[in-house]
Protein backbone atom coordinates (compact mmCIF):
# COMPACT_ATOMS: atom_id res chain seq x y z
CA UNK A 1 0.00 0.00 0.00
CA UNK A 2 2.82 2.35 0.88
CA UNK A 3 4.30 1.65 -2.52
CA UNK A 4 1.19 2.59 -4.44
CA UNK A 5 1.73 5.41 -6.90
CA UNK A 6 -0.60 7.84 -5.12
CA UNK A 7 1.09 7.47 -1.73
CA UNK A 8 4.57 7.71 -3.21
CA UNK A 9 3.63 10.78 -5.23
CA UNK A 10 2.13 12.57 -2.24
CA UNK A 11 5.08 11.63 -0.04
CA UNK A 12 7.57 12.84 -2.61
CA UNK A 13 5.38 15.88 -3.19
CA UNK A 14 5.99 16.78 0.44
CA UNK A 15 9.73 16.13 0.11
CA UNK A 16 10.15 17.97 -3.20
CA UNK A 17 7.81 20.71 -2.06
CA UNK A 18 9.76 21.59 1.09
CA UNK A 19 12.48 23.66 -0.66
CA UNK A 20 9.72 25.46 -2.53
CA UNK A 21 7.85 26.03 0.72
CA UNK A 22 10.82 27.59 2.52
CA UNK A 23 11.59 29.85 -0.43
CA UNK A 24 7.96 30.82 -0.93
CA UNK A 25 7.48 31.65 2.76
CA UNK A 26 10.57 33.86 2.61
CA UNK A 27 9.34 35.61 -0.51
CA UNK A 28 5.94 36.01 1.10
CA UNK A 29 7.47 37.85 4.07
CA UNK A 30 9.47 40.16 1.80
CA UNK A 31 6.47 40.86 -0.42
CA UNK A 32 4.19 41.49 2.52
CA UNK A 33 6.57 44.30 3.49
CA UNK A 34 6.35 45.65 -0.07
CA UNK A 35 9.66 44.35 -1.41
CA UNK A 36 9.45 42.17 -4.51
CA UNK A 37 12.58 40.02 -4.67
CA UNK A 38 13.00 38.16 -7.95
CA UNK A 39 16.40 36.95 -6.79
CA UNK A 40 14.96 33.86 -5.07
CA UNK A 41 16.58 31.48 -7.54
CA UNK A 42 19.98 33.09 -6.93
CA UNK A 43 19.58 33.16 -3.15
CA UNK A 44 18.51 29.50 -3.14
CA UNK A 45 21.57 28.52 -5.16
CA UNK A 46 23.95 30.39 -2.90
CA UNK A 47 22.27 28.88 0.16
CA UNK A 48 22.49 25.46 -1.46
CA UNK A 49 26.20 25.73 -2.22
CA UNK A 50 27.19 27.31 1.09
CA UNK A 51 25.12 24.84 3.10
CA UNK A 52 26.78 22.00 1.24
CA UNK A 53 30.20 23.56 1.85
CA UNK A 54 29.55 23.90 5.59
CA UNK A 55 28.40 20.30 5.71
CA UNK A 56 31.66 19.23 4.05
CA UNK A 57 34.01 21.41 6.05
CA UNK A 58 33.09 21.14 9.73
CA UNK A 59 34.40 18.00 11.35
CA UNK A 60 31.72 17.58 13.99
CA UNK A 61 29.00 15.00 14.65
CA UNK A 62 26.28 14.70 12.00
CA UNK A 63 23.56 16.56 13.87
CA UNK A 64 25.74 19.55 14.64
CA UNK A 65 27.20 19.63 11.13
CA UNK A 66 23.75 19.70 9.60
CA UNK A 67 22.52 22.37 12.00
CA UNK A 68 25.59 24.49 11.20
CA UNK A 69 25.04 23.93 7.49
CA UNK A 70 21.48 25.23 7.75
CA UNK A 71 22.68 28.28 9.69
CA UNK A 72 25.38 28.97 7.10
CA UNK A 73 22.87 28.58 4.27
CA UNK A 74 20.47 30.99 5.98
CA UNK A 75 23.25 33.53 6.47
CA UNK A 76 24.36 33.20 2.85
CA UNK A 77 20.81 33.75 1.64
CA UNK A 78 20.43 36.75 3.93
CA UNK A 79 23.68 38.30 2.66
CA UNK A 80 22.42 37.98 -0.91
CA UNK A 81 19.08 39.52 0.09
CA UNK A 82 20.96 42.35 1.80
CA UNK A 83 22.41 43.40 -1.57
CA UNK A 84 18.91 43.59 -3.02
CA UNK A 85 17.56 45.33 0.08
CA UNK A 86 20.27 47.98 -0.03
CA UNK A 87 19.66 48.63 -3.71
CA UNK A 88 15.88 48.85 -3.60
CA UNK A 89 15.24 50.25 -0.13
CA UNK A 90 18.12 52.64 0.40
CA UNK A 91 19.09 53.39 -3.19
CA UNK A 92 15.51 53.10 -4.51
CA UNK A 93 16.48 51.07 -7.56
CA UNK A 94 13.86 49.30 -9.69
CA UNK A 95 12.88 46.18 -7.74
CA UNK A 96 12.31 44.01 -10.79
CA UNK A 97 15.62 44.80 -12.44
CA UNK A 98 17.52 44.51 -9.16
CA UNK A 99 15.96 41.11 -8.44
CA UNK A 100 16.85 39.88 -11.91
CA UNK A 101 20.36 41.21 -11.36
CA UNK A 102 20.56 39.24 -8.12
CA UNK A 103 19.57 36.03 -9.89
CA UNK A 104 22.12 36.65 -12.63
CA UNK A 105 24.81 37.57 -10.10
CA UNK A 106 24.21 34.67 -7.75
CA UNK A 107 22.61 32.16 -10.10
CA UNK A 108 23.63 29.18 -12.18
CA UNK A 109 26.29 31.05 -14.18
CA UNK A 110 27.41 33.34 -11.36
CA UNK A 111 28.46 33.33 -7.73
CA UNK A 112 26.98 29.95 -6.77
CA UNK A 113 28.78 28.19 -9.58
CA UNK A 114 31.96 30.19 -8.87
CA UNK A 115 31.87 29.12 -5.22
CA UNK A 116 31.07 25.53 -6.14
CA UNK A 117 34.04 25.36 -8.50
CA UNK A 118 36.41 27.36 -6.32
CA UNK A 119 35.66 25.27 -3.22
CA UNK A 120 35.62 22.08 -5.34
CA UNK A 121 32.27 20.79 -4.21
CA UNK A 122 31.01 19.16 -7.40
CA UNK A 123 30.73 15.44 -8.04
CA UNK A 124 30.64 14.11 -4.54
CA UNK A 125 27.81 13.05 -2.26
CA UNK A 126 27.14 15.08 0.89
CA UNK A 127 29.03 13.84 3.94
CA UNK A 128 25.98 14.16 6.14
CA UNK A 129 22.46 14.30 4.84
CA UNK A 130 19.07 14.72 6.46
CA UNK A 131 17.19 11.46 6.88
CA UNK A 132 13.79 10.54 8.32
CA UNK A 133 13.49 11.82 11.87
CA UNK A 134 11.05 9.40 13.47
CA UNK A 135 11.63 5.71 14.29
CA UNK A 136 11.19 3.08 11.61
CA UNK A 137 8.03 1.62 13.16
CA UNK A 138 6.16 4.88 12.67
CA UNK A 139 7.41 5.30 9.11
CA UNK A 140 5.97 1.94 8.15
CA UNK A 141 2.43 2.81 9.19
CA UNK A 142 0.12 2.67 6.20
CA UNK A 143 -0.35 5.93 4.22
CA UNK A 144 0.52 8.40 7.00
CA UNK A 145 3.88 6.66 7.48
CA UNK A 146 5.58 7.71 4.25
CA UNK A 147 3.61 10.92 3.81
CA UNK A 148 3.74 12.47 7.26
CA UNK A 149 5.98 10.45 9.56
CA UNK A 150 8.81 9.43 7.24
CA UNK A 151 10.03 12.95 6.54
CA UNK A 152 13.18 14.73 7.69
CA UNK A 153 13.30 17.41 10.35
CA UNK A 154 13.31 20.25 7.78
CA UNK A 155 9.80 19.27 6.75
CA UNK A 156 8.59 19.57 10.33
CA UNK A 157 10.39 22.89 10.75
CA UNK A 158 8.63 24.18 7.65
CA UNK A 159 5.27 23.23 9.17
CA UNK A 160 6.11 25.17 12.31
CA UNK A 161 7.07 28.11 10.10
CA UNK A 162 3.78 28.02 8.21
CA UNK A 163 1.81 28.20 11.45
CA UNK A 164 4.24 30.68 12.99
CA UNK A 165 4.20 33.07 10.03
CA UNK A 166 0.41 32.79 9.79
CA UNK A 167 0.03 33.76 13.45
CA UNK A 168 2.72 36.42 13.17
CA UNK A 169 0.97 38.20 10.32
CA UNK A 170 -2.50 38.08 11.82
CA UNK A 171 -2.08 38.04 15.60
CA UNK A 172 0.99 40.06 16.53
CA UNK A 173 1.76 43.77 16.58
CA UNK A 174 4.91 43.54 14.40
CA UNK A 175 3.06 41.31 11.94
CA UNK A 176 0.26 43.83 11.55
CA UNK A 177 2.86 46.55 11.17
CA UNK A 178 4.51 44.67 8.30
CA UNK A 179 1.23 44.42 6.51
CA UNK A 180 0.68 48.15 6.99
CA UNK A 181 4.15 48.80 5.58
CA UNK A 182 3.36 46.65 2.56
CA UNK A 183 -0.08 48.10 1.94
CA UNK A 184 0.44 51.78 2.63
CA UNK A 185 3.94 52.74 3.71
CA UNK A 186 3.15 56.42 4.11
CA UNK A 187 0.29 55.65 6.49
CA UNK A 188 2.54 53.27 8.39
CA UNK A 189 5.21 55.96 8.57
CA UNK A 190 2.69 58.41 9.98
CA UNK A 191 1.84 55.88 12.68
CA UNK A 192 5.50 55.91 13.69
CA UNK A 193 6.44 52.56 12.13
CA UNK A 194 9.97 52.50 10.78
CA UNK A 195 9.29 51.52 7.16
CA UNK A 196 12.94 51.09 6.23
CA UNK A 197 13.72 48.86 9.20
CA UNK A 198 10.69 46.64 8.60
CA UNK A 199 11.48 46.27 4.93
CA UNK A 200 15.13 45.44 5.57
CA UNK A 201 14.28 42.91 8.27
CA UNK A 202 11.72 41.06 6.20
CA UNK A 203 13.79 41.06 3.03
CA UNK A 204 16.73 39.62 4.97
CA UNK A 205 14.62 36.96 6.68
CA UNK A 206 13.13 36.16 3.28
CA UNK A 207 16.62 35.67 1.89
CA UNK A 208 17.56 33.46 4.83
CA UNK A 209 14.56 31.23 4.19
CA UNK A 210 15.40 31.01 0.49
CA UNK A 211 18.92 29.97 1.51
CA UNK A 212 17.49 27.25 3.76
CA UNK A 213 15.27 26.14 0.88
CA UNK A 214 18.35 25.79 -1.31
CA UNK A 215 20.17 23.81 1.37
CA UNK A 216 17.15 21.53 1.66
CA UNK A 217 17.89 20.48 -1.90
CA UNK A 218 21.63 19.88 -1.46
CA UNK A 219 21.39 18.27 2.00
CA UNK A 220 18.10 16.39 1.99
CA UNK A 221 16.46 15.99 -1.39
CA UNK A 222 19.42 15.14 -3.64
CA UNK A 223 22.41 15.31 -1.27
CA UNK A 224 25.06 16.66 -3.65
CA UNK A 225 26.07 19.92 -5.30
CA UNK A 226 25.61 20.43 -9.02
CA UNK A 227 25.82 23.87 -10.60
CA UNK A 228 22.30 25.19 -11.16
CA UNK A 229 20.79 22.38 -9.07
CA UNK A 230 17.60 24.33 -8.27
CA UNK A 231 16.46 24.16 -11.92
CA UNK A 232 13.98 26.99 -11.66
CA UNK A 233 12.59 26.18 -8.20
CA UNK A 234 13.18 29.77 -7.13
CA UNK A 235 10.95 31.02 -9.90
CA UNK A 236 8.28 28.48 -9.09
CA UNK A 237 8.45 29.76 -5.49
CA UNK A 238 7.84 33.32 -6.66
CA UNK A 239 4.87 32.10 -8.68
CA UNK A 240 3.67 30.14 -5.67
CA UNK A 241 3.32 33.30 -3.59
CA UNK A 242 0.96 34.75 -6.21
CA UNK A 243 -0.90 31.45 -6.42
CA UNK A 244 -1.24 31.42 -2.62
CA UNK A 245 -2.65 34.95 -2.57
CA UNK A 246 0.13 35.90 -0.13
CA UNK A 247 -1.10 33.45 2.54
CA UNK A 248 1.25 30.99 4.25
CA UNK A 249 -1.29 28.15 4.51
CA UNK A 250 -1.97 28.17 0.80
CA UNK A 251 1.78 28.30 0.19
CA UNK A 252 2.02 24.89 1.82
CA UNK A 253 -0.73 23.42 -0.35
CA UNK A 254 0.79 24.92 -3.49
CA UNK A 255 4.32 23.85 -2.61
CA UNK A 256 3.28 20.22 -2.17
CA UNK A 257 1.28 20.34 -5.37
CA UNK A 258 4.27 21.62 -7.35
CA UNK A 259 6.54 19.26 -5.45
CA UNK A 260 4.39 16.34 -6.56
CA UNK A 261 4.54 17.61 -10.15
CA UNK A 262 8.33 17.68 -9.96
CA UNK A 263 8.29 14.16 -8.58
CA UNK A 264 6.01 12.85 -11.32
CA UNK A 265 8.66 12.54 -14.03
CA UNK A 266 11.32 10.60 -12.05
CA UNK A 267 8.70 8.44 -10.33
CA UNK A 268 6.95 7.44 -13.55
CA UNK A 269 10.30 6.76 -15.20
CA UNK A 270 11.29 4.53 -12.30
CA UNK A 271 8.10 2.53 -12.80
CA UNK A 272 8.45 2.69 -16.58
CA UNK A 273 4.96 4.09 -16.95
CA UNK A 274 4.63 6.57 -19.79
CA UNK A 275 2.21 9.40 -19.25
CA UNK A 276 1.25 10.80 -22.62
CA UNK A 277 3.51 10.54 -25.63
CA UNK A 278 6.89 11.57 -24.33
CA UNK A 279 9.42 12.34 -21.66
CA UNK A 280 9.19 15.92 -22.90
CA UNK A 281 5.65 16.18 -21.64
CA UNK A 282 6.30 14.86 -18.12
CA UNK A 283 9.45 16.94 -17.72
CA UNK A 284 7.75 20.17 -18.77
CA UNK A 285 4.71 19.52 -16.62
CA UNK A 286 5.82 21.49 -13.52
CA UNK A 287 6.65 24.55 -15.60
CA UNK A 288 3.49 24.41 -17.70
CA UNK A 289 1.31 23.82 -14.66
CA UNK A 290 2.89 26.82 -12.95
CA UNK A 291 2.04 28.96 -15.97
CA UNK A 292 -1.51 27.67 -15.93
CA UNK A 293 -1.92 28.30 -12.23
CA UNK A 294 -0.55 31.83 -12.63
CA UNK A 295 -3.12 32.53 -15.29
CA UNK A 296 -5.96 31.23 -13.14
CA UNK A 297 -4.72 33.09 -10.08
CA UNK A 298 -4.12 36.36 -11.87
CA UNK A 299 -7.10 36.59 -14.15
CA UNK A 300 -10.41 38.19 -13.51
CA UNK A 301 -11.92 38.96 -10.19
CA UNK A 302 -9.58 36.79 -8.12
CA UNK A 303 -6.89 39.45 -8.24
CA UNK A 304 -9.11 42.25 -7.10
CA UNK A 305 -10.49 40.44 -4.08
CA UNK A 306 -7.38 38.73 -2.80
CA UNK A 307 -4.85 41.09 -4.27
CA UNK A 308 -1.20 41.71 -3.72
CA UNK A 309 0.13 44.10 -1.06
CA UNK A 310 -0.74 47.60 -2.23
CA UNK A 311 2.79 48.98 -2.27
CA UNK A 312 4.44 45.84 -3.69
CA UNK A 313 7.31 46.72 -5.98
CA UNK A 314 7.51 50.41 -5.15
CA UNK A 315 10.19 52.23 -3.20
CA UNK A 316 9.05 54.35 -0.29
CA UNK A 317 10.26 57.92 -0.58
CA UNK A 318 9.10 59.96 2.36
CA UNK A 319 9.41 63.32 0.60
CA UNK A 320 7.52 62.20 -2.49
CA UNK A 321 4.09 61.89 -0.93
Amino acid sequence: MNNSLAVVLIASGVAYGTPLLFAALGELLAERSGVLNLGVEGMMLVGAVMGFWADESFHVPTGIALALAIVVAALAGAVMAAVHAFLVITLRANQIVSGLALTIFAGAAGLSSYLGNDLQLSDKPARHAFGPLLPKALQNLPVVGPILLGQNILVYISWILVVGIGLYLTRTRPGLNVRAVGEAPSAADTMGINVTAYRYAHTLVGGALAGVGGATITLALTPQWVSGITGGSGWIAVALVIFAFWRPGLCLVGAYFFGALQAVAPELQARSISLGPTVLWTNSLPYLMTVLVLVVAASGTARRRLGAPGALGTAYVREAR
Binding site: I104, F105, G110, Y114, N117
Partner: peptide, 14 residues
Protein backbone atom coordinates in the same frame (compact mmCIF):
# COMPACT_ATOMS: atom_id res chain seq x y z
CA UNK B 1 36.67 29.02 -11.99
CA UNK B 2 33.56 29.12 -14.17
CA UNK B 3 31.04 31.58 -12.84
CA UNK B 4 33.59 34.31 -12.21
CA UNK B 5 32.47 36.25 -15.26
CA UNK B 6 28.86 36.03 -14.11
CA UNK B 7 29.94 37.46 -10.75
CA UNK B 8 31.71 40.38 -12.43
CA UNK B 9 28.70 41.02 -14.67
CA UNK B 10 26.34 40.93 -11.72
CA UNK B 11 28.47 43.38 -9.75
CA UNK B 12 28.64 45.77 -12.71
CA UNK B 13 24.87 45.61 -13.04
CA UNK B 14 24.36 46.21 -9.30
Amino acid sequence: PAGLVGVVQGIILF
